[in-house]
Nucleic acid binder design. Structure first.
Length: 218
DNA sequence: GCGACAG
DNA sequence: ATCTTGTCGC
């Protein structure tokens, strides 16, 4: 499944161009009961990448299962090519879950990407599961600052296209950059992310995954 | 040519 | 992402 994984940035960009049309940006998901969150961290000294995947109940966002995966970091960090660095380990973690989640929230962009294939879209495509990109900062696109109330959002535009939403998940904090990953439309993505982010700035599944991977990275 | 640039 | 303490504010 990870055979012929790109080695160079040029090769990676070519693969993105070849896969971009396979990403589905319309709702193709069933009832959401189990929501997963995925995040990765690095241990530079050991040259390792740690990825965590958790599953929480969509209803109360309580942790149900958490797994970890670790691999040697094999691709450099290049803006726009993050998936080639994190996806292998993230997919490893997802495969360790006892069941397939109904939805996956990924710490990174979905289609709000130069070639419409951010980490969330790439992982969703390879695992064939509905995903949403939930990033803390912008990669591409222009936008107007969303209102101060929780739930306020403004479109993220890139090359005349709406590629995501800048969403205020909590008053007094910086907004999140939400974009369809795979098999989830933008409006549904916004709704789902809000439901998964009832209290803090970050979505609960991602917070749980972030905490877990961070504990095992040092 | 000059900035911008997920994690 | 990672390197890093205290500190201001709700």
């Amino acid at each position: 499944m990870t055979e012929s994984w790109p080695t160079s940035p040029e090769e990676a960009r070519r693969l993105q161009e070849r896969l971009r049309d396979q990403v589905v940006t319309e709702d193709r998901l069933g009832p959401v009961r189990a929501v997963a969150g995925a995040d990765a961290h690095y241990a530079p000294v050991q040259g390792l990448t740690w990825a965590a995947a958790v599953i929480a109940t969509f209803e109360n966002l309580e942790l149900e299962e958490s797994v970890l995966a670790c691999q040697r970091t094999a691709f450099p960090y290049v803006s726009g090519l993050l998936s080639f660095r994190e996806a292998p380990t993230m997919l490893d973690a997802l495969a360790r879950l006892s069941r397939t989640p109904d939805l996956l929230l990924v710490d990174g962009q979905g289609i709000a990407h130069p070639r419409r294939l951010g980490l969330a879209s790439h992982v969703g495509l390879l695992a064939d599961i509905p995903t949403i990109g939930v990033a803390k900062t912008r990669l591409v696109g222009r936008y107007e600052e969303p209102g101060p109330a929780r739930g306020a959002w403004s479109p993220l535009l890139h090359r005349r296209e709406v590629v995501g939403a800048v969403l205020r998940t909590r008053p007094g904090t910086r907004p999140l950059f939400v974009s369809p990953g795979h098999r989830v439309g933008l409006s549904t993505a916004i709704d789902l992310v809000l439901r998964c982010t009832p209290r803090f700035r970050l979505s609960e599944p991602i917070r749980l995954a972030d905490r877990l991977s961070r504990e095992h990275a040092p």
